[in-house]
């Protein structure tokens, strides 16, 4: 594996709710190598977005709180930084793109003014120069007639265009890493492909590392070099993309793969797609043993007694399962 830009060790982020303490992120470990993309995949509510917000240190507090762990970014533990230092990092060396481009821009300011504000925040340039750089960035993300766009308000452009603007804004200070939380989920399919291509192209051009959060394994296959599968607040499998797709080890990963329709294979007679039986466990009082035990086809005694650790099977392929422990 290449040099690591971001390493998370045993991250725990909890939320106080009326029903008790929700352990949204319950001991996450992962690594993002320099210049590569890690896909973080899992179903809704498994803690993907909270992991991302924890890295940005933007978990709403209260009710949320980072209880423990380390987030080593570019050689320093960002959980130990003061807020002012963290603020200088956000949008500068560490950027984030969100899921909903429609609501992610301030409706009352012009696009140019919002972009220039961010550029001036991190780069010591005049307003005019900031506008020029904003124009360059809009050009770079393939927005037609960028000069005109700068003068427009967010509601005047489409969702796909808005996501491009947000990408331009996030990349305007040449960050070392971009976190993208379901960046294409809210867009229609053709636009999705365009945005993903754009992100890949910019990653190559600018040499950034990406953490791409999605529930879509297809997107991971297209975009990522590494993949982490998350379940109930923990990483259950971590591997190079090719390894994971050729040889998924964790029963949850296998389940996810089986629930994807395959266009080149005959449909099974009994049903169209196989889903994973059961429900995600409660985040309030987690089970003893493996979190996946109630939905697993291979469950045996040990799974109910002890929780498996994340075991390294060589070549960076790690899995949290007693079948492979």
């Amino acid at each position: 594996m290449k040099e690591v830009l971001l390493e998370i060790r045993n991250l725990q982020t909890h939320f106080k709710t009326d029903e008790g303490e929700a352990r949204a992120v319950n001991g996450v470990d992962l690594k993002v190598p320099k210049g590569e993309t890690l896909g973080l995949v899992g179903e809704s509510g498994c803690g993907k977005s909270v992991t991302a917000l924890s890295i940005m240190r933007l978990v709403p507090e209260p009710p949320g709180r980072i209880i423990g762990g380390e987030i080593i970014f570019d050689g320093q533990d960002i959980l130990k930084l003061r807020e002012a230092e963290m603020r200088r990092m956000r949008g500068n060396t560490l950027s984030m793109i969100f899921q909903e481009p429609m609501t992610a821009m301030n409706p009352v300011y012009r696009i140019g003014s919002q972009m220039a504000e961010v550029i001036q925040l991190h780069q010591k340039v005049s307003k005019k120069e900031a506008m020029d750089r904003a124009l360059d960035m809009l050009h770079k993300v393939g927005i037609p007639d960028p000069k005109q766009r700068l003068r427009e308000y967010p509601h005047q452009i489409s969702g796909g265009m808005r996501q491009r603007v947000l990408i331009a804004m996030a990349l305007s200070s040449h960050p070392k890493m971009v976190i993208a939380d379901e960046p294409t989920t809210a867009l229609d399919v053709t636009i999705q492909a365009q945005i993903l291509d754009l992100m890949n192209q910019l990653k190559e051009e600018m040499g950034t590392s990406n953490l791409l959060i999605t529930h879509d394994l297809g997107v991971i296959f297209e975009m990522a070099q590494w993949v982490a599968v998350m379940y109930a607040g923990k990483i259950v499998e971590y591997a190079a993309v090719s390894d994971l797709f050729s040889q998924p080890l964790h029963p949850y990963t296998t389940g996810l793969m089986n629930s994807i329709p395959q266009i080149d294979q005959p449909v099974p007679k009994d049903k169209m797609l196989r889903s994973i039986p059961g429900m995600v466990p409660s985040l309030f009082d987690l089970l003893e043993g493996c979190t996946f035990q109630d939905r697993c086809n291979h469950v045996f005694d040990r799974c109910r007694r002890e929780e498996p650790g994340l075991a390294d099977l060589g070549s960076g392929h790690m899995v949290r399962c007693w079948l492979h422990g």
Partner: peptide, 26 residues
């Protein structure tokens, strides 16, 4: 609570400026 407030924070804008420039006018 709006998304664009979170965007502004993620871009590195400080809490006070977010409040006075981004939230106030809306």
């Amino acid at each position: 609570e709006e998304d664009y407030i979170r965007t502004a924070r993620a871009m590195g804008i400080g809490v006070k400026k977010v409040l006075l420039r981004h939230a106030f006018r809306n």
